[in-house]
Design a binder for these strands. Structure first.
Lengths: 322, 322
DNA sequence: TTGAAAGCGCTAACAG
DNA sequence: CTGTTAGCGCTTTCAA
């Protein structure tokens, strides 16, 4: 890296202000009371010299970094940027920084990411696990080194979590559609190794115990959603409502139904990403800000090991379920 | 935060292995040669005790953090997650971590983010500035403290950058459409304080010097794209091709044109996000991986102050320009 | 090749 | 309220 001027140290501020290092430290951090004009002098010197506390030195001493690690399964999944945003906002309110790590949908990468965060000595880790089972080992291992809370996706109920109820929105969707005359439901699922997705699918299955069950699996992509719709409509042409495990699938479904001349079929997505609003796709909004706030306040409390929070989603009805 | 077991230090490894601290350090980092069986002993002890180098201690000593800061203008803009992903991959290949900071489209937040990164002593900063002019001050200020390179968006040619040419794709788009018989072009722009967007718009304007110029401004959202299309089509019903400054706008345009019964109008977006592929929207793919690799290799070289790299985009033709 | 010791910048314990 | 001093964990002179 290129050469950069050496930083001003607290020692230089002390010399400049004619105070001791300790006093300057106290004046700047406010950790203990200092005389008013002394404080003034310290602050003025610091400002004039352009002093900024070196967080490395501080962290070495305090054994805290004021940094949170956030592990997300896949930043390319449009839901997670909004979670990242929410966590950053909530963290900033607590004067915390966030180290973001993307697991790229790979538990191996996820494990490496966790280790890297721990090596960077983050004060706590928020993780949305990439895989229902394969993420377990790395999480257990990490918990020995750092406070950790599952956020949004939860793969182990015995470990701290902050989640959103994923069943209720599916129930609301179905009853809303039934009230409007829809009778023949289908569900396009993502891999059931995705915790939230598994719950959405289960909720749908439970609602269909008395009626024909129409579920088809897909990957997390619009293309896959199109294929799923083709399969559904050819097997069960009577379908009049398709519930999708996420927005990308919903977009694909919408498009393919139009192609098939079946645009009258109701479609819903999940996660309420930009794309849903853009296309008038009914979707489910997760309370990302509240999740973030709750998760951060959890890792900040001493008894965070007891954290089990469940929040509620909101169904956003749009034209696609007109 | 919850209580966590104290970490194993290098001192304990030294005691356990019967070696000196210095030797253990050398054996583990390979910074200097050590005797073969000595190395063996050190590594074995370290492994058995579960020792992991404390990066805080190391950083304080070495004055390096092996961490890069990446400032993006808006993580909610679907282009940036892909840039983040690319930078993380490229960084991982160099054993670097990435601290991501979202400017939330606000130069004030951006400035705070830069300071925070510098306070965290990142070794270098990659930034995609949020604003053509308002981002300047913070960047100039930061350059005094840390090597910095503009990535993708460049607002100051006199400072290091790694960018993608934004004009050529617009030229290609127009000539492709002309070759297929389109004659009446329009452009939906984003605020021209977005560096890349400004360049895209300028390219379009230059191509239209001999023909009627039809440009309308919009915000970065699908809803805004719809409104823009309504305005365009009412002012110039003869329009048969609409080029949009990004994919979100393109989606809105596509939808509104369908609503207006003008689905025959060609539409293109920009950035080639998931949404473009999902909807068959012609778009422009920026070389994010190459940008990331080039930016990182730039900040790693001593003469990075001289970095001026321009890469090429690829136009991805899809049904929307059928 | 190995070890002893200094010291990165900071905060906190201890004196005064 | 202020100053002196130790020491966080590590790497790297400097000596042997």
């Amino acid at each position: 890296m290129a050469g950069v001027p050496r930083r001003v140290t607290i020692r230089e501020v002390a010399v400049d202000s004619g105070l001791s290092i300790a006093t300057v430290s106290r004046a700047l951090t406010g950790s203990r009371p200092v005389g008013p004009e002394i404080a003034q002098r310290a602050q003025e010197s610091a400002a004039r010299l352009g002093y900024r506390t070196d967080s490395i030195g501080r962290s070495l001493r305090t054994q805290r970094t004021n940094t949170l690690g956030l592990v997300i399964p896949d930043i390319a999944n449009p839901f997670f940027p909004s979670l990242v945003q929410a966590v950053e906002r909530a963290a900033r309110d607590q004067n915390l920084s966030v180290l973001i790590a993307d697991a790229a949908n790979d538990p191996g990468v996820e494990q490496a990411a966790l280790r890297s965060l721990i090596d960077h000595r983050v004060d706590a880790v928020l993780i949305s696990p990439s895989h229902l089972t394969a993420s377990r080992a790395a999480i257990t291992e990490s918990m020995a080194a750092v406070p950790l809370v599952q956020i949004d996706r939860v793969i182990d109920n015995s470990l701290p979590y902050v989640r959103a109820n994923q069943s209720r929105p599916v129930q609301q969707l179905v009853s809303h559609l039934r009230a409007r005359g829809r009778r023949h439901f289908a569900f396009i699922a993502q891999p059931d190794t995705i915790a939230t997705s598994f719950e959405r699918e289960s909720a749908f299955r439970e609602l269909m115990t008395d009626v024909p069950l129409r579920v088809v699996s897909a990957e997390t992509s619009a293309g896959s959603g199109r294929g799923a719709v083709r399969e559904l409509m050819s097997r069960w042409p009577e379908i009049d409502a398709v519930i999708c495990a996420n927005d990308l699938l919903g977009v694909g479904a919408l498009r393919e139904l139009r192609t098939l001349g079946r645009a009258e079929v109701a479609v819903s997505g999940y996660d309420d990403t930009l794309i849903a609003e853009a296309l008038g796709l009914t979707s489910v909004r997760q309370p990302v800000d509240e999740l973030a706030v709750a998760a951060i306040s959890a890792v900040l409390t001493p008894d965070m090991a007891a954290t089990r929070r469940e929040l509620e989603c909101a169904v956003i009805f749009r034209e696609s379920t007109g």
